[in-house]
């Protein structure tokens, strides 16, 4: 038996103790991030999501290939870079996930409860929704973010999102802005993007959804917000709610002009 050169194995553990000084810590984290770039398991979700998109599902046994996520029925390429946006048929602003739920209900005939039963994956059970999100977002790779606020409801969502961003509450008095309102801050060793600064906002938004190595899951943008609010000590963010879409609108709009780069891979 001939054995080929096994060049690099897989991404294994995180850095061990922490027995090195700050500069080398930052450098080691960067090296770790670089090492992760090749072989992003997000691709596994993309493949599964494409299959789910094309598969006849739900009581109506139809695929999502007639689903209009903003650029017309079935158009996936570049659609994510323009979301959230106002949709005439629902008379509301939708993000990708709330729009996918809409299509599952209106096209595939699922109940809203069924469509949203498992939106975030956990150990041993990945979520179909996160796979669909991975597929759709992967089709906007390299496309410039171009989120409009021309419609009054889009403008309203943006302003609502901005208000939520600065809204302090809960037992810890936290707002999004507490952690994401100043340049060059970090929690423990994790760098925090300042989402009020265009460059940081662009880099942050265009790298979600992402495969989180520490969780072994592909995480959607709704998950990102859900988990931020959990740590903010707020109640549970309602999946696809107007408020969640509004905050997404504020953050997506601030990323305009940057090339979309997800699904990415993060620690």
């Amino acid at each position: 038996m001939r054995i080929g050169t096994c060049v690099a194995a897989m991404a294994i553990a995180l850095w061990g103790g922490g027995a090195f000084a700050q500069d080398s810590t930052a450098k080691a984290i960067q090296e770790y991030r670089d090492a992760l770039q090749d072989g992003n398991p997000a691709e596994l979700w993309e493949i599964k999501g494409e299959d789910l998109w094309k598969q006849p599902r739900g009581p109506n046994k139809v695929s999502l290939e007639k689903c209009d996520i903003g650029l017309g029925p079935g158009v996936v390429k570049g659609a994510y870079a323009r979301l959230p946006k106002y949709f005439k048929d629902t008379d509301r602003v939708d993000d990708l996930e709330s729009r996918l739920v809409h299509c599952m209900v209106s096209l595939q005939g699922m109940s809203r409860a069924d469509a949203t039963r498992r939106v975030f994956g956990g150990p041993g059970a990945a979520a179909d929704m996160e796979a669909l999100v991975a597929y759709v977002t992967s089709q906007s790779k390299g496309v410039k973010m171009n989120v409009a606020v021309g419609h009054p409801k889009e403008r309203e969502a943006f302003e609502m999102g901005q208000k939520v961003f600065y809204y302090r509450g809960g037992p810890h008095d936290f707002a999004c802005a507490t952690c994401h309102g100043e340049d060059n801050k970090r929690i423990r060793l994790q760098d925090l993007p300042n989402l009020t600064n265009q460059k940081d906002a662009q880099r942050a938004y265009t790298t979600w959804p992402a495969y989180r190595v520490s969780q072994g899951e592909l995480r959607s943008f709704q998950w990102r917000l859900y988990d931020c609010f959990r740590q903010q000590r707020f109640p549970e963010l309602l999946y696809g709610s107007d408020l969640s879409v509004a905050l997404t609108m504020f953050l997506a709009r601030n990323a305009n002009g940057a090339a979309y780069a997800g699904p990415a891979i993060k620690r």
Partner: peptide, 16 residues
């Protein structure tokens, strides 16, 4: 309307 209570984190936490 954007949140639901979960365990110890009730909606009253949103009252400022």
């Amino acid at each position: 309307r954007g949140f639901k209570p979960n365990g110890q984190a009730g909606l009253s936490r949103l009252v400022q």
